[in-house]
Amino acid sequence: MRWPVNTRALRALIRDPMGLMGLILVALFITMAIAAPILAPYNPLALDVRAKLQSPSLAHWLGTDQLGRDTLSRIIYGARTALTIAITAIGLAGTIGILLGLIAGYGPRWLDAALVLIFDALNSLPMMMFALAIITVLGPGTGTLILVVVLVSIPGYARLIRAQTLSLRSADFIVAEQAIGASTPRILLMHLLPNVFGPLCIVLSMDIPVVIMLEAGLSYLNLGVKPPTPSWGNILYDGYTAIRTSSTLVIAAGAPLVLATLGFTFLGEGLRDALDPRFATARPR
């Protein structure tokens, strides 16, 4: 089996300035998330009320918040929160979407019709309204946030995989596998999946910033990650309440949010171009 990761595509990605920038930003945020305990100068939850709302200084590079917590440490740990939620939710939604899409595309027609009806029903709900409804029922929290993202994202992924599967289900190599007696799971996972995965891979990477934004947005409204767990949305809210005293907090939380969103979007677009063989050949050089 060969997955759509090859050196040619990687080189094309690095040659593209936007792609390279995306790659660097994403690498930066992933490093921040993984190495948060090493990188963060302070415990992000440690209170120091005497040092509240300080401006940037050598001791606190990005200052402190109302409770005297070190903003830089909270931002670094916020990357961990944002990426954990985004990657878990997208990974989960991607896996379920792939399975449902394969089943809808390859299975009997009635099952396809039933699944497409469910996808359409979920798709027709506005994301924010749906998120607010679920949060009202289940209460805010990381788990609820992930559930919302998974439910909202599945239809899109499943539809993409379904369309690809439909176009391949009667391809010669699939009939050939049936003729040698390959089981349905084998055909789905070993023969269809590697051939439909590429386009989804790009969509998944471009959806990560959407989830990061959603998490920050809901946390800002106090409907997402519960304080005191650091989240860029929480920090932004703290900054909003303190904006008359100091603008450091808002800028410190807004910048990584913008940069992470841009980074993942650039990476996704770069990947899309780098993996598209037509684009690669049409390019001079």
Partner: peptide, 19 residues
């Protein structure tokens, strides 16, 4: 299956492309 086999008209297309 196994006691019967099929050879396809389009030989390249009948081989799973990523194997």
């Amino acid at each position: 299956r196994g006691r019967t086999a099929m050879m396809f008209q389009d030989a390249i297309a009948s081989l799973s492309p990523r194997m």
